[in-house]
Computed example of a mutant assay.
Amino acid sequence: MVHGELFDVAIIGGGPAGLSAGVALARALRSVVVVDAGEQRNLKAEGVHGFLSREGMSPKELVSAGREELARYGGTAIEGFVTSASRDGGNFILSLKDGSTIAARRLLIASGITDELPELPGLAERWGRDVLYCPYCHGWEIRNQRIGILASDSNAVPEALTFRQWSPDVTLLLNGALSLSPEEEEQLRVRDVRVVDGRVQRLETDNDRLVGVVLDGGSVVPLDVLAVSPATVSKANMLQRLGLEPCGLDEGEGTCLETDESGRTSCPGVWAAGNATDVSAQVMTAAAAGLRAAAAINADLVLADTRQAVQEARAYAR
């Protein structure tokens, strides 16, 4: 099936960044379609945090509210998985997994990222509950609990010191991933962060609650929460035919798209926003990035429309 309409903007990804951009563009009287595969990064989380007036709201409810706003202003949201994007003259063609295509003058990539978790038995099942990574997303909810930091690189030290803000009971699990410098040892000691050597073998649970981790020697470290640092991998592989490839991160493992401050990529006519370009973006900052990219896209279309109008006026005057 081919969607016959040529949209002003097609947005890949229907999370906070994509929907925020979609609503802004629809309010600018642009024809816009949001294509959503329904795989938002935070869907397993119990609630959204750090989003003014939406504190604790279910991620699914936030998406649903965003879709309703988009429809209210004339935007379109469809469920689908974009497999590739290509050029057709000055426009773009999105090919979807179901065989349909969508044509648009501009693209916004808000497809987000995938968190690749450490391979520990029982860990993935608890992701977003008592296995997490962002203190600003979950710190209030886990305050004063027993928090473990599973080290994967040297960033584990500042991570442990940060989580210490929310609890006096923080344990850094070295997990064979790093050796501490004397300065790091001092920092952890004066902040009463315990350091445990040995590799973590699995999670210990009781009545569907995390109660600790089991080390390679068989001993158990009691915990209520385990903080991990997943690799954050871009989901923008559909852009290869446009010559856009995700690049490595400055810090940590993973990939993302490079953009300027407005979200513009190196490919003319293509912008990116949210976790697709900033893996640390929270819900509110992702939504703000979508709004910023929408304004830049509309400004670009205004210029294009003006150039077209000038050309037509000159041709008519001849």
Rank of each mutant, 00 (worst) to 15 (best):
G18M: 05
G18H: 03
L19N: 07
S20A: 15
A21S: 11
A21G: 09
G22D: 12
V23L: 13
V23S: 03
L25S: 02
L25N: 02
L29V: 08
L29H: 12
S31P: 07
V32S: 10
V32F: 10
V33F: 09
V35D: 00
D36T: 00
A37N: 00
R41H: 07
L43D: 01
L43T: 03
L43G: 00
A45Y: 05
A45W: 06
V48H: 07
H49E: 08
H49R: 08
H49F: 09
H49G: 01
H49D: 01
F51C: 06
L52D: 09
S53V: 11
S53Y: 12
S53H: 12
R54I: 02
R54K: 12
E55P: 07
E55G: 08
E55F: 13
P59S: 03
V63D: 01
V63I: 14
V63T: 11
G66D: 00
G66W: 00
G66F: 00
R67S: 11
E69R: 12
L70E: 08
A71F: 13
A71N: 13
R72D: 13
A77K: 00
I78K: 05
G80I: 02
F81H: 14
F81R: 14
V82P: 04
S86E: 15
S86C: 01
S86G: 08
R87P: 10
G89H: 02
G90Y: 06
N91F: 12
N91I: 04
I93Y: 05
I93C: 11
I93T: 14
S95F: 03
S95W: 02
S95T: 14
K97P: 00
K97T: 11
S100E: 11
T101C: 09
A103G: 13
R105L: 01
R105Q: 10
R106M: 15
R106L: 11
L107H: 01
L107G: 01
L107W: 01
L107T: 02
L107K: 00
L108M: 10
S111R: 01
G112K: 03
I113L: 11
E116H: 11
L117H: 12
L120H: 07
L120F: 09
G122S: 10
A124H: 05
A124T: 07
E125W: 02
E125P: 01
E125T: 05
W127Q: 06
W127V: 07
G128D: 06
G128W: 09
G128T: 10
